[in-house]
Design a protein around this nucleic acid. Structure first.
Lengths: 232, 232
DNA sequence: CTCCTTCAACTGGCATGTTAGTTGACAGGT
DNA sequence: ACCTGTCAACTAACATGCCAGTTGAAGGAG
């Protein structure tokens, strides 16, 4: 395992050094370049990133408070492992926030918002047809972000993302065999229809049903990637 | 302004020094000992707490990522100010989570949980009668914490607290003139009744109505404490 | 009197030396 | 062969020195 590729990134960003290190590590953890359970050696990170221990320590501290790394006092720092119970909690929280968001958007939506959602949905259909799973994944994320953005509460999307960091890592694991983009598009379509009809109840129900799919598909992962999960 | 009183606290806690400093500062900010907008001088904090700059910097970094302090690079660190728009966002998020929680609890509740909620509610009635606003405030917080605890998701209560840190500070401002504990008790009673009846819709509605009260009572604060609010 | 320039003092950010605690392996005894 | 006590190497945590950017006040020009 090497992180030589990250050395390039480090000075292509701006802002305080500590924050750049934080971003690099965070991205690496979220896209599983640093896999769950991996031990992070401060000394090695300093050397490979070409910075001193202060910004690295600061970055690891923030990641720890986000739950992305576990710091064992005086001993070691490791990328936090996944756990089904934690994924279920995050799923619950994410559903709570997104259901509330879609209800508000259904009540307040304007034509421009409908247009942007509709455009994103057509893009999803195209990507699904082309079997471009990576692109589809991003369009999917965008769809949900758009809805939260349309609440008029700028921090809501960020908060929802913060609440479901583990979920985001777990989703990467089932990316290759996505396999059900068509169903996803239909579920998204149902959500958009409810928003267009300004039917709050239907919007809640559609979003809830859609998000409920994820946790069932996540359950088998614990067997498929046992080393990525916290021993229970 | 002095923080001499905190010097006693610092070694009465345990764990890493950085985390102790973090706790002390966090508590001070949340109970408005450090009022919104106040400038925090790293050097002064180090001297008064009797520690070096490393743990203080670490603590301020975490507080910054929580939004409790604003760090102006190369210049100053200040306790973050309140803003009505931010309070509205947090109110929205808090309502989303607590409404989802109460619906789940209404579905799953057992007798022991009903007993504990009922006991807390009787305590609230007593404290309201005695005009013990401080005690009532704590019982109120406990009531909501109990519901979130009963979801079976241990992190939900913590997440909800994390999402509404500004809200928590703002509530302190209207503590002295609480004035409506009786209405609050009745709203709590309605929530408990819905939980007992396992009526999810009623539970959602009761919780939503209850939490909706807060933001209207918060609105006048911007005039009453202009220095605590971000200039808009 | 007002505005601009300059400079000194202060701040946060970073690097690095030092300390204390944990861990795992090795050696010695059972 | 196995258990146990000891020790060496490693880690995170802390202290401190240094630097660069910001700010605000003082002084000079208009």
């Amino acid at each position: 395992m090497t992180v030589e590729n990250l050395v390039v990134d480090i000075d292509s960003l701006d802002g305080p050094l500590g924050h750049r290190v934080y971003s690099v590590l965070r991205n690496g953890i979220l896209d599983l370049t640093f896999h769950p359970g991996m031990i992070l050696r401060k000394g090695a990170l300093c050397e490979q990133l070409g910075v001193s221990r202060s910004p690295v320590a600061e970055a690891l501290g923030k990641l720890s408070s986000e739950g992305l790394v576990d710091i064992i006092p005086q001993s070691a720092t490791r990328v936090s492992q996944l756990s089904l119970s934690e994924l279920r909690e995050e799923s619950f929280l994410r559903e709570a926030v997104e259901v509330a968001a879609v209800a508000k958007v259904a009540a307040d939506r304007n034509d421009d918002q409908l247009t942007r959602l509709s455009r994103n949905l057509r893009l999803q259909a195209l990507l699904a047809e082309d079997r471009d799973y990576q692109g589809f994944f991003e369009a999917d994320v965008d769809f949900h972000s758009l809805i939260m953005e349309f609440t008029g509460y700028p921090k809501v999307a960020a908060a929802a993302g913060q609440l479901s960091l583990q979920l985001r890592r777990a989703r990467i694991l089932l990316l290759p065999k996505e396999g059900r983009p068509e169903e996803t598009v239909q579920e998204h379509q149902a959500i958009l229809d409810a928003i267009r009809a300004q039917d709050q109840q239907a919007a809640r129900a559609a979003m809830s049903a859609h998000l409920g799919q994820l946790i069932t598909r996540l359950t088998p992962l614990e067997q498929q990637h046992p080393t990525y999960f916290r021993p229970s």
